[in-house]
Design a protein around this nucleic acid. Structure first.
Length: 214
DNA sequence: GCCGTCAATAAGCAAT
DNA sequence: ATTGCTTATTGACGGC
């Protein structure tokens, strides 16, 4: 057991991802796979919440019970470690020593716990960033598709421009003499709007660069 | 201290 | 209910 009830990785994740509330801890490990209810490292006894300290494993005694191969921290130990981790993610030697003493653990165990905790916090953050970037990719892909369709539609308009007759000669005007009003998006003859501008405009100039048509 | 990894442990779940 | 497999969590270690 160790961390009964507590999420296996109750990591207080703070990630700079828009839309994610960093104030609420992310709990991983869906499926409710929690360490709980039973700590085989602890002798069975009536107490529900308080456990004898999971301590430095003693040497196996002759004829005694085989000692547990893996320490499981008690709930209280986990709680204190988490609390300490919230205050600082790394410990100086004195803090480590003091915490180890308090928890009846070896300093090395405290050190390793913090290392694992840091690593797993980082892993969770990376996973969340990955998910966020995937969602961004999806929406950007969709946006890209939409814009490409729009480009295709505009290209189609350019290939087959509307035929506009000259008010003077009643002959179709060349497409190069047409312009589009950026406000109302109507094709008009630039000649009617600003005849001199049409004459002076270089052939490569975009018809959308002037807004004097209307 | 970090990283990659291993191994112990516990929960979930389908098959029997 | 039991069993066996899969998966997730977590304490620990060695190398850098």
């Amino acid at each position: 057991m160790g961390d009964l009830g507590r999420s296996p990785a109750e990591l207080d994740l703070t990630i700079g991802v828009p839309g994610l509330n960093s104030s609420s801890p992310i709990r991983s490990g869906g499926g409710g796979c929690n360490m709980r209810d039973l700590d085989i490292n602890q002798p069975a006894y009536g107490g529900e919440e308080e456990y004898p300290m999971a301590s430095i494993e003693e040497e196996e005694e002759e004829g005694g019970n085989p000692r547990p191969k893996k320490l499981r921290l008690s709930k209280e130990q986990s709680r204190l470690l988490e609390e300490s981790f919230r205050q600082h993610h790394t410990l100086n030697p004195k803090q480590k020593e003091a915490l180890a003493m308090k928890l009846k653990l070896r300093p090395r165990q405290v050190e390793v716990w913090f290392q694992n905790r840091r690593a797993r916090t980082k892993l969770k953050q990376t996973e969340m960033e990955c998910e966020y970037l995937k969602r961004c990719f999806g929406s950007l892909t969709e946006e890209n598709r939409r814009l490409q369709r729009e480009v295709e539609e505009l290209r189609a308009l350019r290939v087959a421009p509307p035929t506009v007759l000259s008010p003077h000669t009643r002959q179709p005007l060349p497409a190069s003499s047409l312009t589009m009003c950026p406000r109302c998006e109507r094709v008009t003859t630039a000649a009617t709007a600003t005849p001199r501008a049409v004459i002076g405009r270089p052939p490569s100039a975009s018809p959308f660069t002037r807004s004097t048509a209307c």
